[in-house]
Design a protein around this nucleic acid. Structure first.
Lengths: 228, 228
DNA sequence: CTGGTGTGTCAACGATTGTTGGCCTACAGT
DNA sequence: ACTGTAGGCCAACAATCGTTGACACACCAG
């Protein structure tokens, strides 16, 4: 009962410092000759393997979203992408690297600076509702972020880099923006959790308009009401 | 790419129809002689193994809460409980049965029928805040409920049997109670997700009183405001 | 004392996991 | 044509998982 943390720590992939997760040129066969930052004739080489890489990434996104980090096996991802499991290792180093590459999220938070202040809440709720339902990426991000430290880190990054700035732009007092953004995130993520992950019946049965009518005043208050 | 569902289905333990999860007498060595519903002299036998069972259950709760269903291994649970892994199998049948026994949640939702209507929101928020921080059970329930279908089913059960009735008792229109309960659950679970699982900084830094001041009006509105 | 049942340990099974190295094919540069 | 290298597959590795069966000790009834 002494060692409890390590078993949870070494299973959590590091989302930063990924061995080979960038997208340009990272075949491990190149031993030490790729020190030159730009070779003479390869900056825009078509890379015949681009299709394979994309297939792996797409399959990985689906599997991570559907099964979570632990249960999404590299073998299953490779089978979905119709290639050999070892190709995944070659292109993305290891499972953590694959996850890091596959979990790049674009939330596309709407620009609120040209929206009437009193409509911002409804706009936000409706946007995230549609964003959540157009594909399963966000559901998967949440599923992984809850169980896996790297996934949680990724979600904190999305919050800090994509949610907070958008709200800070319309927040009357800039230093209150993080708190207000967190409150809004709690309501939106909470509804997504109940509706799309836990499938709590009343939350699933609500229509878009009902949902917006209920949640928009909450988000609006978190955004513009003065601090209690 | 044809078989996608089965790999996720056979890994999800059935929370109902657990082979041997009850607590009375379920040693598999009794082959067919236990058809008598009450033996003559064993209804209150002390069961020397009660301590071991409790230790297993406590360790299982901790591990499931900390690591989620897949990463919480039976071997690790047994090591924490200081017994052999095979004992876990003997007493709880299999991993799914152990989880079913370990994930019995008591939310202890407060009785609101004697609370002034306008204070119900604050009371609810404060109760769940304290409930969440007194132990890690709820965090673990959420961590498992997101990745695992049995965990999700367990959370739906808690919602239907422990949350919904309490709110239905104070809801002016009874048939609106499920919807209102789901909205309240979305806000409370969402804040718990951001604060205790994802550790989004602004959500972690908020004090209890601030949190209540922000969230209580929301919950109050979901509870008593007329339907939009 | 003898037998039976509950309690517990040990060692192993088969399956699956992430990961690795070797080998083969196809294409581009000369 | 020849050669080098990137793309791809195959077989296997060690580790770990859930699970099982055989075996040893402790107790209680007779």
């Amino acid at each position: 009962m002494a060692e409890h943390a390590p078993s949870a720590a070494d299973a959590a992939p590091a989302v930063t410092a990924v061995p080979a997760a960038s997208d340009a040129s990272d075949v491990p066969s190149g031993s030490a000759t790729d020190a030159a930052p730009r070779g003479p004739a390869d900056p825009a080489r078509p890379r015949r393997s681009a299709a394979t890489r994309a297939a792996i990434l797409a399959a990985a996104r689906d599997r991570f979203a559907a099964d979570g980090y632990e249960r999404a096996t590299i073998r299953a991802i490779a089978r979905d992408a119709d290639i050999d499991p070892s190709m995944v290792m070659r292109y993305y180093g290891n499972k953590a690297g694959l996850f890091a590459a596959a979990s790049e999220i674009e939330v596309h938070a709407p620009d609120l600076s040209h929206v009437p202040r009193e409509e911002a809440g409804a706009r936000l709720v409706r946007h995230f509702l549609e964003r959540w339902e157009c594909d399963e990426t966000l559901t998967g991000m949440m599923r992984v972020g809850v169980t896996n430290e790297a996934g949680a880190q990724r979600m904190r990054g999305v919050f800090a880099e994509q949610i907070k700035p958008v709200l800070a732009a319309v927040c009357p007092v800039p230093e209150e923006a993080p708190t207000r953004a967190a409150l809004i995130a709690s309501q939106i993520l909470g509804m997504a959790l109940c509706r799309y992950v836990l499938h709590i019946p009343p939350a699933v049965d609500l229509g878009h308009d009902e949902l917006v009518a209920w949640l928009a005043p909450t988000v609006q208050r978190y955004l513009t009401a003065e601090q209690p």
